[in-house]
Nucleic acid binder design. Structure first.
Length: 786
DNA sequence: GGCGACAAACTTTTT
DNA sequence: GTTTGTCGCC
């Protein structure tokens, strides 16, 4: 395709954005307004019209998936030279830079990327007596601080202690964590002007996608990359900023003009992805955010089916209903599975859907969650590779020293690490520490033999590295250390599992035999990089990568689009989650997530809301997401599939049920109760999915269907109603202590077995005489003391 | 030091 | 319901 043809496909604003190429450019691009198209076209235009060399262009996006897609599109436009354009995430760009110059800022030549688990393990090594969970919590804070380039508050002594110790330990290993990929790059450019000049001269054009999700560290890095001759263009949408929890600052996009000189602004306000109906719903919701830039986004595709909200009784009914609909769509459209997606807020919600899809033989694939890299056996292999190539990696060492069992216990391991960390002559080398410990008899008993064996295996293998291709080398390592044997045995004991661990290992060995990873240290580095930065890419079996229904978190859908979208679990406490401990800002972020999720749908959008859900083995009542209530009634179709709504309204979902959980509703205004009535309107869609199961003349389901639908939850709606009517609220004065005997209206008599903090409030664990257990929020229970 | 049995904690979101 | 952690015994 010629450049003229490419340009002729753009609208006026898009064309304007492509043609501005001096100073700085900020593109405000609403959802579906063609921002990727603008970026890719800008790249093509720069190469073919402006004569900029492909390798002088750097494009930064947010996910690796987006990188691949962009590279592909660029290649489609300009041919093979598109491969020369550097398209990376911020993090992988940092790695690229640090692989070349990292030693200047104290990194190991072959530094490895520690993920969160590795980092926590590292911190635990330094404080073996401290509570692991607490350390993990502090690590999270440290990670956010680093993303924001902040130091811990001096008032929090423990955080300060952990922070400095963590940094010290990390430097000792020579490795980096996620934040370091950016921070160390910044440090490098600041302390080595010659490197900065070199980099600035190399990149004439820098394009940043999803700019609203950049954090302070990334922003600072960007500023250092832009030289006097560099053209910078950032593209983003403040309404789609959904990574605040990770330090993303919407401020970056609003302050862009201040940070970069001569900034011109272009607004892309035409949405080409969604139908007007879908965009209307998304706008209804996002309009409730107070802190956002004013903007207009209009739909190119007029009309369209109204989005639908389905009310169901339980999580299982929700999954059943989605499956049922998918099957029906599939009858008329063989592509229906491939272009449908199920979107949920948290990964844990995927399980019910997996089960149901599996049982019904519907093909599906999950994006994200269960990562190949996270499997125990794969992490073991990777730990071994890391250790072989960097003996200062104490985290990898700790993981593998006694696996398989070499009779080296926790006490011995602690001693070994102690030596590695403190002994100056060893410089953190854990293998030297082992040798020293054996020589000086620090280790005793059976452990001595084990440590010797480990060191011997290490010495035998290290000589082999680089003499054979990496896949073969790994296999040899696994044999020498007895890891392969270990997993062969595990596979026989775990034969019920579908996934054989040895097969996963085999796959990994194969992967390391691929040309790009097979060659010595370079190959290993490339591989480890891929493994930690793009974990989902590993282990994607052919045919499973894109075939079938997509299961994905709302966060992960960023930049993607689907013909048909199912948003599930639209209930307060799930989405938005943990309502009562959230600030207004948190809610606004959740609302943006909702906006992003809704605007993924091109043609059809279905939202699901269950009135009860199984959580921790207990049936918990759920209330409809506040976001559903923000949608204008005329913009959606509401379909009530709940049991109680199908019996003449006797057990209708009405205000009383809301008042049962009034604790959650308070503070969000009276829309809560006023909308309650909307649900009891008992709207039943008679044309699409329901008519097959229901008696046409009655407009109601057959009894058998109704009972099948609800057999598991028969109790739940009835109980809720009873509770609300007879015991409206617990007097604030009643308190419960462990050991108290109580009577619950729902479950009978029992004993309070525990009282603890959970999710920021006090909860009670109760053991009922019937044998069942339950967890209840203190301020919400209506137990009678006996 | 290893292993099994039981209890407790558990659910944000990701590079 | 599931996973992780602790305790006691061999």
């Amino acid at each position: 395709m010629s450049m003229d043809q490419i340009l002729s496909q753009l609208n006026e604003q898009q064309l304007e954005a492509v043609k501005i190429n001096d100073g700085s450019l900020l593109v405000f691009a609403g959802a579906g307004s063609g921002k990727t198209r603008v970026i890719t076209t800008k790249i093509a235009y720069a190469i073919e019209v402006l004569g900029i060399k492909a390798h002088q262009i750097l494009a930064v996006t947010f996910t690796n998936k987006a990188c691949r897609e962009m590279q592909e599109r660029v290649i489609n436009m300009v041919g093979d030279t598109g491969n020369m354009v550097m398209i990376r995430t911020f993090h992988s760009f940092g790695v690229w830079l640090l692989r070349r110059y990292g030693q200047l800022v104290g990194l190991d030549k072959n530094f490895k990327i520690y993920d969160d688990d590795d980092s926590i393990a590292l911190l635990c090594q330094a404080y073996p007596d401290d509570n692991k969970k607490e350390i993990a919590g502090y690590y999270k804070k440290i990670a956010v601080l680093k993303d924001r380039l902040e130091k811990p508050n001096k008032m929090d002594e423990r955080l300060c202690k952990y922070y400095s110790k963590y940094e010290e330990q990390l430097r000792r290993t020579g490795n980096v964590d996620f934040a370091d990929m950016i921070i160390k790059s910044i440090e490098l450019l600041q302390t080595h002007p010659e490197v900065q000049t070199e980099v600035q001269n190399r990149f004439r054009m820098i394009l940043v996608d999803e700019y609203q999700d950049s954090n302070k560290a990334q922003f600072n890095l960007l500023k250092l990359l832009v030289g006097p001759e560099t053209f910078i263009c950032a593209v983003g949408d403040d309404d789609q900023s959904i990574y605040r929890f990770r330090g993303a600052e919407v401020k970056n996009i609003l302050d862009f003009p201040k940070a970069f000189k001569n900034t011109k602004k272009v607004v892309l306000g035409k949405n080409y992805r969604c139908t007007e109906s879908i965009l209307d719903v998304a706008k209804d919701v996002i309009d409730n955010n107070r802190t956002r830039a004013e903007k207009t986004l209009s739909a190119y595709n007029q009309g369209g089916d109204l989005p639908q909200i389905y009310y169901v009784d339980s999580g299982i009914d929700e999954a059943d209903q989605v499956v049922k609909m998918l099957k029906q769509f599939h009858e008329s459209d063989p592509e229906a599975y491939n272009n449908s997606a199920i979107l949920y807020r948290t990964n844990s919600q995927s399980k019910d859907f997996e089960d149901r899809l599996m049982i019904n033989g519907i093909p599906y694939h999950i994006v994200g969650s269960l990562r190949f890299y996270d499997r125990e056996e794969i992490r073991d292999c990777i730990a071994m590779i890391s250790l072989m190539t960097n003996p200062r990696d104490s985290v990898a060492f700790q993981r593998m020293i006694n696996k398989p069992s070499r009779k080296i216990g926790d006490v011995s391991i602690e001693k070994l690490l102690e030596i590695a960390i403190t002994d100056q002559s060893i410089q953190g080398d854990v293998i030297l520490a082992c040798k020293k410990a054996v020589d000086e008899k620090v280790i005793r008993g059976a452990a001595v033999e084990g440590v010797k064996n480990f060191v011997d295996a290490f010495d035998r293998c290290q000589g082999l590295f680089g003499t054979m291709e990496n896949g073969k080398f790994l296999k040899q390592v696994l044999l020498e250390f007895g890891i392969l044997d270990f997993y062969v045995k595990r596979d026989t004991t775990e034969r019920l599992k579908i996934n054989k661990r040895t097969e996963n290992i085999e796959q990994l060995v194969n992967m390391l035999s691929f040309e790009e990873f097979s060659d010595g240290q370079e190959g290993v580095n490339r591989f480890l990089e891929l493994a930690s930065l793009e974990a989902s890419a590993l282990g994607e079996e052919e045919g499973h990568g894109t075939e079938g229904v997509t299961l994905i978190t709302m966060h992960n859908t960023k930049g993607l689009e689907f013909e048909r979208v199912f948003m599930v679990g639209m209930e307060n406490e799930i989405f938005p989650g943990r309502l009562d401990e959230r600030t207004e800002e948190d809610i606004e972020e959740e609302r943006r997530i909702c906006y992003v999720a809704m605007t993924r749908a091109k043609k059809e959008l279905y939202m699901f809301c269950a009135s009860s859900r199984l959580r921790w083995g207990n049936v918990q009542p759920e209330s409809p997401s506040m976001f559903l209530k923000e949608i204008d009634e005329s913009h959606v179709e509401e379909i009530d599939l709940r049991f109680k709504s199908r019996f003449g309204g006797q057990f209708r979902f009405d205000n009383r049920q809301d008042s049962y959980r009034s604790g959650y509703g308070n503070g969000f205004g009276n829309s809560y109760t006023s909308h309650g009535n909307r649900y009891s309107a008992n709207y039943v869609n008679t044309e699409k999915f329901f008519n097959r199961d229901q008696d046409e003349t009655e407009g109601r389901p057959k009894p058998s269907e109704a009972s099948r639908f609800n057999i598991r939850n028969m109790k739940s709606p009835v109980l809720i109603k009873k509770g609300a009517a007879s015991a409206p609220a617990k007097p604030a004065s009643v308190t419960y202590e462990v050991g108290d005997r109580i009577r619950s209206e729902f479950y009978g008599e029992g004993t309070i077995s525990g009282k603890r903090q959970f999710a920021g409030r006090e909860v009670l664990d109760v053991k009922f005489d019937s044998g069942r257990t339950g967890t209840f929020a203190c301020d919400k229970v209506t137990f009678e003391k006996i």
